[in-house]
Design a protein around this nucleic acid. Structure first.
Lengths: 110, 110
DNA sequence: TTTCTCCCCTTGACAATCTAGGTGAGTTCT
DNA sequence: AGAACTCACCTAGATTGTCAAGGGGAGAAA
């Protein structure tokens, strides 16, 4: 419960990463920047959250990793969605929409 | 990550409870039912989550408790929003809307 | 009197995130 | 050439919130 600093909703990080990778492979550092940019600088993913999440999802087979070189000529690990990952992205998106709608309903109750 | 069973988004329980109490004092059992009903049976609050949350918020001064009798003539602890609780409700509602919008933005990105 | 529902509670496990570090390689500045 | 900075990776430990799984008592209903 920080003051007004941007935090993640627990449980949404995997979804955000999967979605970010949906447009093509990216390395970790770029994923953070992409999420931050796409969210209007509201969401800030800490590296201490990012890498454990990436490793979890790789283990589960949702993403695959491959070493390469970044645009800045630095060694970087590129992550790509697998078929299972695309399925997971669909599922989690549906769950998010469902729960988000439910919460909104409660907040709009008389 | 259950199959399709309704879960809470971590971090939203306090908000849901505060909002539910906004219309008037309720006892714990009734809070659960109210959230469930208002959310179209999507959100199910476990008692093992509810009571710790209520006690946390009482400790923080957002709600106050008072023993009474339920509609069914049973002893029940009624919780009511305090002034600080109303403020907290406002704040958390704003944060939710902000973060919810941010996530939606990411999910809608090309 | 047995059973059911209502209503309260706690303990321990678990999962996700954050804090706070650390590494190394390439680039830029002085 | 050396220093400082950025990019990009990583991990250990603490913290937090939720869930699972219990338990108890009192009123109502069978």
């Amino acid at each position: 419960m920080q003051n007004s600093k941007a935090e993640l909703l627990q449980g949404t990080l995997d979804l955000l990463i999967l979605k970010t990778l949906n447009t093509g492979p990216l390395h970790g550092y770029a994923i953070v920047q992409s999420i931050q940019r796409c969210s209007d600088e509201i969401l800030a993913v800490e590296e201490g959250s990012l890498y454990p999440s990436l490793h979890r999802m790789e283990e589960k087979g949702w993403i695959s990793a491959q070493w390469g070189r970044s645009e800045n000529n630095r060694r970087a690990k590129y992550y790509a969605l697998t078929r299972a990952g695309r399925k997971q992205l669909e599922d989690e998106t549906a769950i998010w929409e469902r729960v988000c709608r439910a919460i909104t309903l409660v907040l709009q109750a008389a």
